[in-house]
């Protein structure tokens, strides 16, 4: 990671990597979602509504992975003062928040035909909603700090503290057995039939690559804006 501490070196890698991640991600999403929608069988209990999992699960995964990325970048910023860590954390916040919101919205649309309700104050749903609020608060804090010209320490500390919610989301289905089903995919294997599992994994990989491309684009924009601001400050001095 320290290899990428130099913005010029980072940009040399990020520029060719961005379109590769974007296009391969879009292709995998199209394949995963296409198979999930038109080839994979309906579930014996959920019926056709199971097809929502091909977008809901990747959105949930990226909502959580996004905050994990923010926490790691915040740690690097606070401990090693990695110059790109703060940029990376800020770049993750908006896509992470969008995917957390999409997870809640698609989950709600899946819940109505499956559970008979759009919303339930269940452990998993509530902790995911808290994650969305954390993203909103993080974005507001990061913007305020940037406008003040701060170093982003308060934002980084908030990024680390907010990570407490990630294991709460992960284990909520074990701690509070309410409406949301338990985990179907774990390190030991999966209880999902392979006809549904493969399109789900392809879709999750595709959305992850697309997420990476979006983060790189936002980091590149942030670095370019910082460059302009530094130049303007030098000219004003």
């Amino acid at each position: 990671m320290h290899f990428l501490a130099n913005p010029a070196r980072f940009l040399k890698i990020a520029r060719p990597l961005t379109p590769w991640l974007g296009w391969s991600g879009a292709l995998l999403v199209a394949v995963g979602v296409g198979v999930g929608l038109f080839v994979a069988p309906p579930d014996y209990l959920q019926g056709e509504s199971v097809r929502i999992i091909y977008i809901h699960v990747p959105a949930a995964w990226l909502g959580m992975a996004g905050w994990t990325g923010i926490a790691l970048a915040s740690l690097m910023q606070l401990v090693w003062r990695h110059p790109l860590a703060g940029v990376a954390a800020r770049a993750i916040a908006v896509p992470g928040g969008v995917f957390a919101a999409l997870c809640l919205a698609t989950g709600s649309l899946w819940g109505r035909p499956t559970w008979g309700t759009y919303w339930e104050w269940d452990g998993r749903l509530t902790s995911m909603l808290i994650l969305l609020f954390l993203y909103v608060a993080y974005g507001a804090l990061a913007n305020a700090d940037r406008e003040r010209g701060g170093e982003g320490r308060a934002t980084a500390i908030f990024g680390l503290i907010g990570a407490i919610n990630i294991p709460v989301i992960r284990y909520s289905v074990d701690w509070w057995r309410t409406l949301h089903q338990g985990k179907s995919i774990g390190v030991a294997g999966s209880s999902i039939d392979s006809a549904m599992l493969w399109p789900l994994l392809i879709s999750a990989l595709g959305f992850s690559l697309l997420f990476g491309a979006i983060v790189l684009m936002r980091m590149r924009a942030d670095l370019a804006r910082t460059k302009i601001e530094a130049r303007l400050r030098r000219m004003a001095a």
């Binding site: 509504s49 929502i52 977008i55 919205a105 698609t106 649309l109 899946w110």
Partner: peptide, 8 residues
């Protein structure tokens, strides 16, 4: 519901 989710 599927169409609404995918559209979103």
């Amino acid at each position: 519901f599927i169409i609404a989710a995918y559209a979103l």
